[in-house]
Design a protein around this nucleic acid. Structure first.
Lengths: 161, 161
DNA sequence: TATTGTTATACTCTATAACTATA
DNA sequence: TATAGTTATAGAGTATAACAATA
């Protein structure tokens, strides 16, 4: 089945026959797949009143395990965003009562972000739905193909560092 | 080699052993790979004074072939963005003299976006550099692996429609 | 001096709504 | 009525800079 990338590649072959545009077949489809997936995940998040950045913070807190407390600087490193961006994500979540900021007993400069009961409840409810969405997205691939895909993506990410 | 996704999956296994988080291995790596690639492509674009949306418009015009003219509504469909977003991309490019808007002789309502000489020159110079970057990103995979990766991504995108 | 964290501010890209003009 | 295109406006998320406080 020809997709949009096939048509784009065909155009390039006609217009620039001397160029090797084969990398576009991979990178183009990577970016389109990421866009399509992002949009499906966003729909699931929205059903629970969340967006991707908020889900990311709550999920990071949950998977860190009891007592569900993390320093903002650690959240910034995990998400690869600035500490300022973290502060702004936290403002949003804290105003909804999903997290709260506490003093860090081990570091007078620091803060600990804690999951509230409401936050815990929301992420526990959202997570299975999210996993179901992710499962549906990749169900078109066999388990072996999924493993190969994950490995290829890992190698691409590593080689881009 | 354990990457960040391996550590995240391990955390989930400990905290939520009853959940099947295996889809995250694929989707998580997809989103990280897309982010890493996007950032490398952006660096190449920046070296030529461009960003991804601007490159997208100029490349679309170039691969459309002579006379390098496209209606805005077609640009919107190709890029899957609103016609308003297209108008704003065009404002930016036109103010730099890289494209110009002409009347559409076949449709009195319409406009044709034309590559200027400067725009043509810029995209012709940027394109080989861009392809080199893309080639470097996927060079870690064999040609066969690249083909498999592209196919897997295509299937994921299709199944998300 | 370096690190943690916050706010103020600005930037980028986008979509929605409102509008003009032509098919 | 529908389509093409634009601007005004607002929204989301981010980073940089400036700042306060502690290590």
């Amino acid at each position: 089945m020809a997709d949009q990338l096939d048509r784009i590649l065909q155009q390039w072959h006609v217009e620039k026959p001397e160029l090797d545009v084969s990398p576009m077949a991979v990178i183009g489809r990577l970016s389109r797949a990421a866009m399509a997936v992002e949009s499906r995940l966003a729909a699931t998040f929205a059903r629970h009143g969340l967006d991707a950045p908020s889900f990311d913070v709550l999920a990071t807190l949950l998977r860190s395990g009891a007592p569900y407390r993390i320093a903002p600087v650690k959240l910034a490193r995990e998400a690869m965003i600035s500490t300022s961006a973290v502060a702004q994500r936290l403002n949003k979540l804290e105003s909804r009562g999903l997290v709260k900021r506490e003093a860090n007993p081990g570091d007078g400069r620091g803060t600990l972000v804690a999951l509230t009961d409401a936050g815990r409840e929301l992420i526990e409810t959202t997570l299975p739905d999210h996993l179901e969405t992710e499962h549906a997205i990749i169900a078109t691939l066999s388990v072996e193909e999924q493993a190969n895909l994950a490995m290829f993506l890992q190698r691409i990410t590593e080689s881009s560092r």
